[in-house]
């Protein structure tokens, strides 16, 4: 039974479920909501690598999300570039801006870093909002094309869009899994535990922090670019601070610093808020206290909480086995000494 719930099987089951999901529901609205959730998840994964695995809480994430979205939109609508060329350029632009901003902001640490990036995020929002001639200001941009064809494959229906986004999500998860389980990932975790210690064991902390910051902005940009071509119109509000905190909420609920946290948190919150639509903004009255309790009692979110209890159980079992072995040994020892007498 336990073998049935092995990680590999669970992952396989989830992927199969995600693939057949559009056929089960037949409800385009559900497919739409799910696609949007997948797009958020990609952004949350980026935030997770930086905040969860390296210990640097960036609050400029929505800013980079917006940069990705606007870069794609402007390159396709104003510059009339081929969709996929624009897509790749959008990712490059976001990453380069991430590199520049990272170089400056990573000179700060802990809450100073959070406050600094909060300001950076707000400035990005302001630039988008006020730069009327480029971004269309408060009116935003309309007529953004959907994903272009790849050979014979078209992305015109909601279901095909769903699969495209799912593909990018799976790619993101795979990349994250590999990073976290590599020496590079261990390096990031070492920086999170103690930057001083990491440096004394020969890790160039600045270089690694910058790397993680750029990866994080890359995924924010990917998420933003997919969002723009999925929703087809964007306004400056997608770069607003509240989006950053939405992403952060998904991450905290699911489990910061865990690999499956972003998926669990995003699906849960998006679906629960769909169900609570009728309460309008009053649903925050439910979310607020639940989130507070969660942070107090499960600082590593739902996934982190479960993982910890499993780990504790395993340790207890191990300890019990060890005790048993010790007891047997002592029994044997007394028996032996009795014989010697």
């Amino acid at each position: 039974m336990a073998a049935f719930f092995k990680q590999r099987n669970v992952i396989a089951a989830l992927i199969i479920f995600a693939i057949i999901f559009p056929f089960i529901t037949n409800n385009t609205y559900f497919v739409h909501v799910m696609t949007l959730s997948f797009i958020w998840m990609i952004g949350v994964y980026g935030l997770n690598l930086l905040a969860g695995y390296t210990g640097y809480l960036s609050l400029a994430h929505a800013g980079f999300f917006a940069i990705g979205a606007y870069a794609l939109s402007l390159l396709t609508t104003k510059a009339q570039l081929n969709y996929w060329v624009a897509f790749i350029l959008a990712l490059i632009i976001t990453s380069v801006l991430g590199l520049v901003i990272g170089l400056i902001s990573l000179r700060t640490k802990e809450h100073f870093f959070a406050i600094y990036t909060l300001c950076v995020g707000y400035i990005i929002y302001l630039v988008i909002d006020k730069w009327d001639s480029l971004t269309g200001g408060i009116r935003g941009l309309i007529g953004i094309p959907g994903p272009g064809n790849i050979g014979p494959i078209e992305f015109t229906t909601p279901v095909s869009n769903y699969y495209l986004v799912l593909f990018f999500l799976l790619l993101t998860v795979l990349v994250m899994y590999r990073i976290v389980h590599s020496l590079t990932g261990r390096t990031f975790i070492a920086i999170r535990n103690s930057e001083d210690l990491a440096q004394t064991i020969g890790i160039s902390t600045m270089k690694n922090k910058l790397l993680v910051f750029v990866i994080s902005t890359f995924f924010a940009g990917l998420s933003g670019a997919l969002y723009a071509s999925f929703i087809r119109f964007i306004g400056p509000d997608i770069g607003y601070i509240s989006i950053t905190f939405d992403l952060l909420t998904y991450l905290l609920v699911g489990g910061i610093g865990t690999l499956s946290g972003p998926i669990v948190g995003t699906v849960l919150i998006v679906w629960v808020s769909q169900q609570l639509q009728f309460l309008q903004d009053y649903r925050m009255l439910i979310f607020g206290p639940v989130l507070t309790l969660l942070v107090i009692f499960y600082p590593r979110g739902i996934v982190g909480g479960i993982a910890e209890s499993l780990m504790k159980r395993k340790q207890k079992k191990q300890a019990r086995e060890e005790q048993l072995v010790m007891a047997k040994k002592s029994v044997a020892a007394t028996a032996a000494s009795n014989e010697n007498r």
Partner: peptide, 18 residues
């Protein structure tokens, strides 16, 4: 394990492509 990291060279690309 990370203590020996400074004697290794693998980078992000190595990590992504294992």
């Amino acid at each position: 394990i990370v203590g020996h990291r400074l004697r290794t060279k693998s980078n992000l690309v190595d990590a992504i492509f294992r």
